[in-house]
Amino acid sequence: FPTTDFSSYLLQAQGSGADVIGLANAGGDTVNAIKQASEFGITQAGQKLAALLFFITDVQALGAQTAQGLSLTSAFYWDRNDATREWSKRFMERHGAEPTMVQAGVYSGTLQYLKAVEALGSAEDGKAVAAKMKESPFDDPLFGKGSIRGDGRAIHDMYLYEVKTPAESTGEWDLYKEVATISGEDAFLPMLEECDFTKQ
């Protein structure tokens, strides 16, 4: 979408009869597109919206009434299990909002870095630290089991979620219901041979 007014695009999508309308934008543009889709009655008429990049803070800002039924993928959800709830509670106490998958990812990545430094006993050799991270599969409280590929990509499961209806939601941040788990092997593109830095 090259504009913040998505009316013409949404009306074309509505008229197409497609079962799902994919929103290939992000941030405020996605928020505006979802608001306009709701105003046009697109989802109420049976078509579904799927956001390619969307965060729980965006959903919370929109509200379940407007965002209900939206499909999205995320690597992290605060209410997925006891470990994510415990960590997210501490995050909420400090920041006043539930964490996004990016914020959880920064924490997890930093944790793996510190574990590699601890194992080596030093942070002086950055290449050695990176190599240690790549050779050490992880199992942390936020993302579960995973590994870091030769190109630096963290491989872990992803999840398909649907935003709950207001009737299904029990609180301000009770927003997602899990639809499917996507294995790390299927969730990420395969690594290109020339990007395998472990061989350089």
Rank of each mutant, 00 (worst) to 15 (best):
M133N: 06
Q68I: 06
Q200T: 11
M101T: 00
T198N: 11
Q65E: 10
G126I: 15
L160A: 06
T3H: 14
Q14P: 00
E118M: 07
T100G: 13
T84N: 02
G121L: 02
F91G: 06
F138H: 11
V106C: 06
M92Y: 15
G27N: 07
S108Y: 06
I56Y: 09
L189H: 06
S16F: 13
W78F: 06
S74M: 01
Q36H: 09
D19M: 00
F76D: 06
Q14E: 14
E194S: 14
A24P: 11
L192A: 15
A50I: 12
R153G: 05
V129H: 01
Q60K: 14
K35M: 08
K127E: 15
R85H: 00
L111P: 03
T73F: 10
M191D: 08
A64G: 08
R94H: 12
G121N: 02
L111R: 15
W87V: 12
V59R: 00
A187Y: 08
K199Y: 08
T73H: 12
F143E: 01
A51W: 03
S88P: 03
E185Y: 01
D157F: 12
K115M: 07
G17L: 08
W173G: 02
G28F: 11
K89T: 15
P141M: 04
A45L: 03
V20S: 05
G69H: 04
E194Y: 11
S147V: 03
D58W: 01
V117Y: 02
Y77D: 05
D174G: 12
F54L: 14
N32R: 10
L160I: 05
V163F: 01
I21T: 04
F143H: 01
G17A: 07
V102N: 10
G146C: 07
Q14H: 07
V20R: 06
E86T: 14
I42Q: 00
G109R: 13
I155C: 12
T181W: 09
A131S: 10
D140Y: 08
